[in-house]
């Protein structure tokens, strides 16, 4: 039965794609994908290729990361404030295997992501006794303590100290090829995460989020599925973490483990709106480019007042997070899409 369904789907694939492409969401997605495919070839300018284009690469890495957080918090309802753990651990494992064991990059990426999954299991088991805000604080405590352990004290030298590991090879010397590698992985990750959230597994996750007692009473082993949610989310966070390590060609405690990374995931996913996986991508692009713009603006002078805007960037981000959570609980992606859709319907004369 399932096989036949699959066959049917595969046979009808072009038609299925065509009908999806004509829907509003599908059309918009395809438009975005086309724009992202064309962007690397728009200019040959050195600054464009080596400075501007990597911002897109970075945004896509953070899009995977934020989407993985959204899968855990938005879909499964397990609030994690320590997503930087998976991000950092995977980056460190990847860097260690490349620099000290001479493993090929791709093997190291797989090992890094699997290491993050293992950490997801390790942290998931004690933390899942916690619910709601407790879980948030528990995971936050985990990430803070790992950061401290890596950063300072006499054990830090085992973990390569505050300098971390540097001199990693990047994914490719050509920024355009690097861009496309990350682009393909981003698309695959998003398809997988969205399919998971729509599948039976995703329905189970949502049922745990909405009513855990009810889910338990319906015969769902909630603990098992919560650990699974943790592991899947950790895998994608780990994937993003390894890419981030290779993007920077170095890992260090504050850059990879910092609370800032957990903050970024939360920020990006909340801006787009929780439970909309694609909102994470919107948030990632918005914040990476806002950061880029603020750094580009640099110092501004208003009369006697000299303000270095780039110093204020994270304060501005935090303010945006506060405003979004306070005034737009659903995030900004869905309302914008709804308005656009109304406009679209009017234009199409429906």
């Amino acid at each position: 039965m399932v096989k036949e369904k699959m066959k049917e789907k595969i046979n009808n694939f072009p038609g299925y794609l065509k009908s999806w492409g004509t829907t509003f969401i599908g059309g918009l997605t395809i438009l975005c994908l086309i724009i992202l495919t064309v962007i690397p070839f728009l200019s040959n300018d050195l600054k464009y290729v080596y400075v501007f284009l990597p911002q897109f690469t970075l945004a896509m890495i953070f899009a995977i990361f934020a989407a993985s957080w959204d899968l855990l918090t938005g879909i499964s309802g397990q609030i994690s404030f320590g997503h930087a753990i998976f991000f950092g651990v995977a980056g460190y494992i990847c860097a260690y295997f490349i620099d000290y064991q001479g493993f090929p990059t791709w093997v190291a990426i797989v090992l890094g992501s699997l290491g993050a999954v293992f950490f997801g299991l390790l942290i998931g088991i004690p933390c899942l006794r916690l619910k709601g805000p407790y879980l948030a604080l528990g995971t936050l405590a985990f990430s803070l303590i790992l950061l401290k352990l890596f950063l300072q004290g006499s054990l830090a030298h085992i973990f390569f100290g505050s300098e971390g590991i540097s001199g990693l090879p990047s994914l490719s010397d050509d920024p355009i090829i690097e861009y496309f590698i990350i682009f393909i992985f981003t698309i695959i990750s998003f398809i997988v995460i969205i399919q998971i959230s729509k599948s039976k597994l995703g329905t189970i996750f949502k049922s745990i989020r909405d009513d855990e007692t009810g889910a338990d009473a319906s015969g769902i082993n909630t603990t098992k599925y919560k650990v699974i949610a943790f592991m899947i989310s950790a895998f994608f966070a780990g994937l993003a973490g390894t890419f981030y390590a290779l993007y920077n060609t170095a890992v260090n405690p504050t850059g990879n483990f910092g609370t800032l990374n957990s903050f970024f995931a939360i920020l990006m996913a909340s801006l787009g709106g929780l439970t909309t996986i694609t909102g994470a991508a919107l948030g990632a692009f918005f914040f990476i480019f806002l950061e880029y713009i603020l750094i580009e603006i640099g110092v501004i002078e208003i009369g006697n007042l000299i303000i270095d805007v780039s110093l204020w960037k994270f304060a501005i981000f935090a303010l945006i997070l506060i405003i979004v959570v306070r005034f737009a609980e659903r995030g900004i992606l869905r309302p914008i899409l709804e308005h656009l859709k109304d406009l679209w319907d009017v234009l199409m004369g429906r």
Partner: peptide
């Protein structure tokens, strides 16, 4: 009324204070 909202917003506040002090 929403525990997620409170946690998110106090986290944002903590981060804002931290970055303000940093600046």
């Amino acid at each position: 009324d929403t525990s997620v909202g409170v946690v998110l917003i106090t986290f944002g506040l903590a981060f804002f204070i931290q970055e303000y002090v940093f600046v």
